[in-house]
Design a protein around this nucleic acid. Structure first.
Lengths: 167, 167
DNA sequence: AGATTATAGTTAGCCGACTAACTACTTGTC
DNA sequence: GACAAGTAGTTAGTCGGCTAACTATAATCT
């Protein structure tokens, strides 16, 4: 996502605003800051997960399975919930299967489907990662007061709901 | 970046919190919301740029060149400012060169380098995209008051500066 | 001045997304 | 109950990132 390291300073934005008077300098700065911080935090998360041999894609699959009562789901359902294509989910499951973190079980009721099940090894991988993940998130977010956190989220949701204006 | 569509609700988080008492439910929700909104806005931006035959990578290169006094820079400098590897920058410049939006000019002072220069066609591509881009950003961000925008950015910067706790 | 070290750019090969097309199976309709 | 349409999963091929290794050139240090 946003890779740009060199965010414009107000001098540059002013130069651009001369050519493009539509520019709302403050708005652009707020927008770019949001993209940039989101991207950087995502990178930091990937980096953290990498220490456990995971990446966001695989990690979410494990978590989605753990959410299920019987620790089981189907590739299609996982793909939809994880926000990736079914083809991508095939690859993610391949990798997790190879490492023994999940298993594919044939579904006798609908032979098009598989049951994807979290294994004991998969659960123990989560048990290894999640406590540390939660501690890190807590440390990260504790720079904001609980009230600030609520305000942040409410503003983000407003932007989220307004994003269609960009389409 | 964050693809996960199915953010946990408080019921799921509570279940996880039983197994992982470290979990600060509110903090996790705020964190995931930030990643999610950042990711979605980035996708929306890519989608917008795609209508003009651009993607974020190429678009930033054009903008970085336009920031320069003589509309000229080097691949290394562009790579660093854009936050991509030099190898990736080679590919971006290849594409832009092929479309005539930038040109490579040999550098007689240091024959290892090239001058990468924005062409008139490249400038006119920006002139086509930027006004609409600024209008969209303005419309998006105008859901927040100027004061809210400032508060948002200041909280984001706090998180940004605190992200090393994750490492 | 010559050898070493550092820098600029490219190439090759990998990785994880994607879409499109394919097989296998199920559902629905006449 | 056969056949059309829909769904589940995989495969093949593309794309834009990446790192590592390579070539060419410049700078530095005896």
């Amino acid at each position: 996502m946003l890779k740009l390291k060199d965010l414009p300073d107000s001098k540059i934005l002013t130069k651009f605003a001369e050519r493009y008077p539509e520019a709302n300098i403050d708005g652009v700065m707020h927008f770019l800051t949001l993209l940039r911080v989101g991207s950087d935090l995502s990178d930091v998360l990937d980096n953290f997960l990498g220490q456990y041999g995971l990446l966001q894609g695989r990690w979410w699959v494990l978590i989605l399975l753990m959410r299920e009562q019987d620790l089981t789901s189907t590739p299609s359902s996982l793909a939809e919930k994880a926000g990736v294509s079914r083809a991508t989910m095939t690859g993610l499951i391949d990798g997790l299967d190879k490492e023994g973190l999940v298993i594919r079980v044939t579904n006798v009721e609908d032979r098009r489907k598989f049951h994807i099940k979290l294994t004991a090894l998969g659960q123990s991988k989560l048990d290894e990662v999640m406590p540390e993940y939660y501690r890190r998130v807590d440390r990260l977010m504790s720079i904001l007061s609980p009230e600030e956190g609520d305000v942040l989220t409410s503003m983000l949701i407003k932007l989220q709901n307004n994003r269609d204006v960009f389409k």
